[in-house]
Design a protein around this nucleic acid. Structure first.
Lengths: 204, 204
DNA sequence: TTTTTTTCCGACTAAGTGGTCGGTAAAAAA
DNA sequence: TTTTTTACCGACCACTTAGTCGGAAAAAAA
């Protein structure tokens, strides 16, 4: 572990810069040379640490994307009280991050899922696995919400989870072209509408 | 017009094949040679008809994508009765097209918006213009729905339009990885839930 | 038929691409 | 100190890319 410190540090630097450029320009539109130039490193350094461009990207997924999705989209809603309140807050947070042009990992996910679709099965699989964890997590807190009396027992938790992720990914796609503040506001408003229709009513 | 017939025919052939390959492999990941090979045409033919790869794609947007979005997503809902009913039918139709692996132009739109974001401002603009037409159209039929007594007057039509397009684009992104039938079913079910919360009630 | 215009051919260029490989400083182990 | 391992360098390779250009069939006009 100790002796690997330098190795780890360099690899991490490469991964961080790599993700930044892949996110900005797309995987197929970013060359390894681009990454190395912005790090003042050479080809030799890259192929010393990684076997290929694909292997490099997989390591980025596993070391950066997975962890961020967990800390931003999964942990904040785990085991909390009212699912709708906590999901709303989480999405609001994530969209605010996006609005300030920082990297929003929910979107990074959908962005790369699109780019690698039908082009790289291995990477697609890794990305879809993350998405599935997100989905499963949403489903389970919705189920818990039912027994806690927050969520109407007649609704389909899986359907809600799918719908939530879909709408989130979609609005992020639209936000890339600016007008973010307005989009975010409108989106959150409609999300509340939707949640409202799924909430348990006190005697109907 | 008559003398341009051959010209038009060849250009059209190139555009159709071009869109197919760009859609399947991505713009930056599809070479002009790929397109020409599958048409048994040469470089000369391509650059006789088009100035550049970019110019070629713009012509595809204007000749194929715009028209299809109109015929599949805009005309079917224009001036009809209950907005929710007709939008639901339209989305159901589009998702069915997608399920059968045919090209679904609503998705093509979001797909390319992602790919060209921050990479080609000109093309991004053309794509966003189409999206805006779709949005404006949705807003106007929702407004009409209000005066016709189908849509609750207190809701925000623009917000609904944004939310609809977002969720649609998002679910299509997820559908690329299979399990389409299930996703479509769950999505449509939640869409109805959402619409339900926006519908005018007979005396509350 | 002859001439002109339209349409297309394909070799070529310059600039990349991912990846290899022999070499070399610096750090760690002996 | 000497030796070995780690981490990195950068020229190089085979290949692909968008785009050019002189020429030649094919079609239309004269």
């Amino acid at each position: 572990m100790d002796k690997n410190l330098k190795r780890m540090a360099t690899m991490h630097r490469m991964q961080v810069t790599g993700l930044e450029l892949f996110y900005k320009n797309g995987y197929y539109n970013t060359s390894i040379d681009d990454i190395l130039k912005s790090l003042s490193l050479s080809k030799g350094a890259f192929y010393y640490h990684f076997q290929s461009k694909e292997d490099f990207f997989v390591s980025i997924v596993q070391n950066l994307i997975v962890r961020k999705v967990y800390s931003m989209l999964i942990e904040p809603i785990e085991g909390k009280e009212n699912p709708f309140v906590v999901i709303e807050k989480c999405f609001e947070n994530a969209l605010e991050t996006a609005e300030h042009n920082e990297m929003d990992y929910g979107f990074i996910l959908s962005n790369f899922i699109s780019e690698f679709n039908r082009r790289n099965a291995l990477i697609s699989k890794y990305l879809m696995d993350i998405y599935k964890v997100w989905e499963v997590n949403l489903v389970s807190i919705l189920q818990k919400g039912k027994s806690d009396g927050y969520v109407d027992r007649h609704v389909d938790s899986e359907g809600i989870a799918t719908y939530l992720i879909s709408s989130y990914m979609g609005v992020r796609t639209l936000m890339v072209q600016g007008n973010c503040r307005n989009l975010r506001y409108k989106y959150m408003q409609q999300l509340r509408h939707y949640f409202n229709s799924l909430t348990v009513r006190e005697i109907v």
